[in-house]
Design a protein around this nucleic acid. Structure first.
Lengths: 237, 237
DNA sequence: CGACTAGTTGACATGAATCAAAACCTGTGG
DNA sequence: CCACAGGTTTTGATTCATGTCAACTAGTCG
């Protein structure tokens, strides 16, 4: 996923086994003023010329494409610390829209490339960023291609749990700022199926919904198992 | 897709509206001896350290991941001129296997990065390559997430037609070196559904199968329409 | 507090998966 | 050159997961 940890941009200890956030690249944005973007507003549209790269300072962004009549595919959610635009050429391939009120910083595409060219130490970070995007895209293809509704939901929640604020993982708190429709369009399902699947997992004691925008994971290991990512299909008790 | 045109690597006129192949990057491989890889043999395995980048000189390669019991997801097919490995860090994220007998060239990862660092003119090509991979991944997510069996098949054939040898497009000839199972695992369907969908399209006069490994497209415009990529759902008579 | 939208639940429809069998290529040996 | 053996592909019958349509419920925000 394009999702990073919900972290600030300063140098920070990353938890073992995780990708290090693109801190050095993030520092390019530091000097820029933060702009605000109200919930539901677009940061850019699919097809717009890619004049800028953005870093999310606060809030959540969805990236999506529309095909045909009313079919929307959300390809990623972006969280604080994430950067969007690095893997694009002349045109944006998707629309970016604020899920919640956001604060973002931007730099010009040309400036970005110049900076990366000038300081060779940024290049590994850029490569790492692009690799993470690629890896996320591959995971999503696997999810969409071979996982059932339950596995999709569990993968999604498991991801949010791992990438959420460090303290929250311990108590199993996952915040879901996006709507059920957003989740559905991200997972290739319908709202109804998302809703039913959450209910089913709640009945089985894997999790409990807390209001509309939070879920408490009661059995994190079981959740990980149900996400279908393990090397085998062994059941957990 | 990671699919490029079936072209040699020299400078070449590309057809209007297409991405220019990464010619300059390809030239890095020119000096290397071509290795042969028999059909069905692996070029590398998911999880192997990424010591090399490869360029396909001849033949077709499939990239795939396995999840759980026997679920295989083909994330891309590679054709002559394509390069694999540029968007990877320390480990391959997928297995690469020869669909047909192949000839390939390799260069070391370090050499590759050194060369790109040394000659700034290669950098735009690398970026273009990564962008194409990203764009292909996004298209595939849309396909897997929102398209039905017929749209998937048509998208796939349409792609092969566009990217196939220049002469073949005129007569609507699409060669399918891969098995039905490969196609199914690429499109997120089963062999039976792939087969049935081809039959249905044949009955409607959109195409005719020619043996097992070729399909003649009779109505290319209709095929494009059925792929569901258009901005609207308007029907073609 | 009340109205509106988002989410849940239920009944039913359907496209694709599954299971099973027949037809078709492909390559091999007589 | 033909027959046969192997796997691959096609076709058919049935099942099942998820989508669709519709009603109900519960958050949320003024």
């Amino acid at each position: 996923m394009l999702m990073e940890k919900h972290t600030a941009f300063e140098t920070e200890i990353t938890r073992a086994g995780e990708f290090a956030p693109a801190l050095s690249l993030g520092s390019l944005f530091q000097a820029q003023p933060a702009e605000t973007l109200g919930s539901g507003k677009a940061l850019f549209w699919e097809g717009d010329p890619t004049n800028h790269l953005f870093e999310i300072a606060e809030g959540v962004i969805r990236l999506y494409r529309i095909i045909g009549e009313g079919r929307r595919v959300i390809t990623a959610f972006l969280f604080p610390g994430d950067i969007v635009g690095a893997s694009l050429q002349d045109r944006y391939l998707y629309t970016a829209e604020a899920v919640t009120d956001c604060r973002i910083r931007r730099i010009g595409r040309k400036t970005f490339h110049d900076e990366v060219s000038r300081s060779p130490c940024l290049r590994p970070d850029l490569i790492a960023l692009l690799c993470r995007e690629t890896a996320a895209a591959h995971d999503q293809m696997v999810l969409l291609s071979k996982k059932n509704a339950e596995e999709r939901l569990c993968s999604f929640l498991h991801d949010l749990l791992r990438r959420g604020p460090a303290g929250a993982e311990e108590i199993g708190a996952v915040s879901l700022p996006m709507s059920r429709l957003d989740i559905a369009d991200y997972l290739g399902l319908t709202i109804e199926t998302v809703s039913r699947t959450i209910t089913k997992l709640a009945n089985r004691g894997v999790l409990t919904p807390v209001g509309r925008h939070e879920i408490r994971i009661l059995q994190p290991r079981r959740l990980a198992h149900l996400s279908g990512d393990g090397r085998d299909g062994a059941s957990l008790h």
